[in-house]
Amino acid sequence: MLAARRGFEPRRRRRREFTALLFIRLTGAFTAGVMALVVGFIAFNGAGAISVPFLTEYPRDAMTAGGILPAIEGTLILALGALLTAVPLGFGAAVYLAEYARPGPLVSVIRLGVLNLSGVPSVVFGLFGLALFVKTFGFGRSILAGSLTLGLLILPTVVAASEEALRQTPQSFREAALALGASRWQAIRQVVLPAALPGMLTGAILALGRAAGETAPIVFTASCAYTLASPGSVFQEVMALSTHILNLATNGTRIEETLPQQFGTALVLLALVLGLSLCAIIVRAKLRKGRRW
């Protein structure tokens, strides 16, 4: 029977092989294509709007003219505020999970919590921020409320990246330090953390990019449609690039006229977020290559 099949087998097999692998290769090309299309389209249409005044002035004439300085400022402030919230907690939690935790119910519950936190939709973080920071704590719509909300949102990312960096430092470093009479904390602080820090910071930069690009969590905790001055305190509202695009594209009365502004803002946001991510990816690749353990 097998002998009989061998007659036609090769051609059919070869054809199927070719088709299947072609489809798979196409998905690769497709992804690269989508990436190029998105970036290219925004860059092509947005480049015309970019100018020095666009980056350094306040909006004018119902947003149809002027610049987006307050939105750039707001996004940077909110993202940095988020990082300040997430990094101390996230690094701390990662050190606990990687260095101190022993398998047990407590650790399983913490891990499950962090894992689920990373799956909570960003708009739910927004609701939570609204209920807790804006209303219960009385911060109002403010930089503080928005930064805290964004900080919680990126916390799982920071924890996961930091824990991975800590786990990649070899056990032998810890053993060597302990055998030389270091205490647990001394070994962590003097040997493990310095070795893991570049990796942890790379994770933080990736998280920073994510915070800068988010929209839903800040719509009702931090952002306003229009401001006339840079914020003077953390209790003030700010504009942000992401919400600015959303407002101009969906809420404005002159959507057609603000289109160049929309593309320009989108380009600035895309450049900021992809720039940060790309930096982190490159640094991470360099670190991996340079690592000798």
């Binding site: 989108a266 992809l274 991510s277």
Partner: peptide, 8 residues
């Protein structure tokens, strides 16, 4: 691609 802000 995963990092592209959803608003964009």
């Amino acid at each position: 691609l995963a990092a592209i802000p959803s608003v964009i």
